[in-house]
Write a protein that binds this DNA or RNA. Structure first.
Lengths: 148, 148
DNA sequence: ATCAATGCAAAGACTTTGCATGGTT
DNA sequence: AACCATGCAAAGTCTTTGCATTGAT
């Protein structure tokens, strides 16, 4: 991970952009988390830590990181954008628990199959695939079992 | 399709809800389209036809239809909810052209494989699966080829 | 007549933008 | 010093809500 974020500095430099306090803080926070997050998550945890960065800066930096392909944006049924670091784990999807909102990564051979079938059948030039599976996670299944 | 929409009337009745002008108009419009749409699409095409229904009514009716499982809501990278009628074609996903925005349905054996693998591996109680594939459709591929 | 549905206007949630100020190189 | 980034406040989008009025049964 570190390596990718190092590259970000070079990217900024190559574009005449600046390696500012705000960007460093946000990068640092992303390294610490590495999992799914949204702009508000980021904002509030930075604020809580006292290393405040404004919302506009967060939004702007996330866009920059997305453009540089350090993070990826995806949508779940929540009316806001979620992000996650682009990582080695290609071809994965998200399990989203409808009860607690938890997001769990998964990967499956089905994803590969899907990609190959889709490209072939529909004459569609594939770029990115986004898979969301909604349901109930183990913990919430247990919790509701215990209630009865 | 007609049949499902007939049931809607019964549903309304059974809940003490009313079969109003607005709801009839929206239902009629959905029958006419049957494909992907969002609230604004609906609003503007109804307005164009002179059968205006207010935005709040549209949003409220779409929610009702979703609750009744006549339509399904899904999210693409566009900052708004899209809907589509729930149909016989189970286990399908959407190809979304990043250039023209067109949405194409597809189905694939990969979807089945995915479902079975996910349920097994993660101990996740599956409810609904939402697959979006981003890329470039045939028409846009051609168009950009012709430009060169 | 009753109670739900509608439309308007206003509020909400999330995100983006204009602009003056401050920070990086 | 030059120019980008930041923060604030305000504007944008899409969606929801309060409330008085209209409409369905």
């Amino acid at each position: 991970m570190h390596k990718e974020f190092e590259q970000f500095k070079d990217f900024l430099e190559s574009k005449g952009l600046k390696n500012t306090r705000g960007r460093k803080i946000i990068l640092g926070e992303l390294e610490a988390r590495k999992n799914h997050f949204n702009a508000e998550d980021l904002y509030s945890s930075l604020t809580r830590k006292g290393t405040r960065v404004s919302r506009p800066t967060i939004y702007r930096t996330l866009k920059l990181l997305e453009r540089f392909r350090l993070i990826e944006r995806f949508d779940i049924k929540k009316n806001c954008f979620y992000y996650e670091p682009i990582s080695q784990k290609k071809n994965h999807g998200h399990l989203i628990c409808e009860q607690c909102g938890k997001i769990i990564d998964f990967s499956s051979n089905g994803v590969e199959l899907l990609k190959s079938e889709v490209g072939r059948d529909k004459d569609f030039k594939l770029d990115n695939i986004s898979i969301q599976v909604f349901g109930v996670c183990r913990d919430c299944q247990r919790a509701s079992k215990n209630k009865n």
